[in-house]
Amino acid sequence: MSPGILVAGEAIVDLLVGDDPRHPVASPGGSPANTAVALARLGTPVSFAGRFGNDRFGDLLMSHLSGNGVDLGHAVEAAEPASLAVVTLDPDGLPAYGFHVEGTADWLWADGELPGALPAEVLAVHTGSLAIARQPGAEVLARWFEDQRRHRITSLDPNIRPDLTGDRTTYLRRLERLVAASDIVKVSAEDLAWVHPGEDPVRVATRWSRELGPALVVVTLGGDGATALHPGGTVRRPAARVSVVDTVGAGDAFSGGLLHWLAGHDRLDRDALARLTTSELARALDYAAAVAGLTCARPGADPPTARQVRSALRPAATPA
Rank of each mutant, 00 (worst) to 15 (best):
V7T: 11
A11S: 13
I12K: 01
I12W: 09
D14E: 07
L15R: 09
L16G: 08
D20R: 07
P21V: 09
P21D: 09
R22F: 12
H23K: 15
A38C: 11
L39A: 10
G43I: 06
F48A: 03
F52Y: 12
F52K: 02
G53H: 05
N54S: 15
N54A: 15
D55S: 05
R56H: 15
F57N: 02
N68L: 13
G69E: 06
E77T: 14
A79P: 00
E80S: 01
P91H: 04
G93S: 06
G93L: 00
A96W: 04
Y97K: 05
H100S: 13
T104I: 06
D106C: 11
W107K: 13
A110V: 12
G112A: 00
P115M: 05
E121Y: 03
L123N: 13
A124V: 09
G128M: 01
R134T: 13
V140E: 04
V140Y: 02
D157S: 03
P158Q: 07
P158V: 10
P162A: 06
D163T: 15
D163L: 11
L164C: 10
L164V: 11
T165L: 14
D167P: 04
R168G: 10
E176P: 02
V179Q: 05
S182L: 01
E190N: 03
D191H: 04
D191N: 07
L192Y: 09
H196F: 12
H196I: 00
H196Y: 14
H196C: 13
T206W: 06
L212C: 07
L216K: 01
V219D: 00
G223N: 08
G223K: 05
G223F: 11
A228V: 03
A228S: 09
P231L: 00
G233T: 11
G233F: 08
S243K: 15
V244W: 07
V248C: 07
A250T: 08
A250D: 10
G256D: 01
L258H: 03
L258G: 09
W261Q: 11
L262V: 12
L262R: 05
H265Y: 08
H265G: 11
R267I: 07
R267D: 10
A274D: 14
T278I: 08
E280Y: 09
Y287L: 02
A290F: 04
V291H: 09
R298D: 11
R298M: 04
R307V: 15
R310Y: 06
A317C: 15
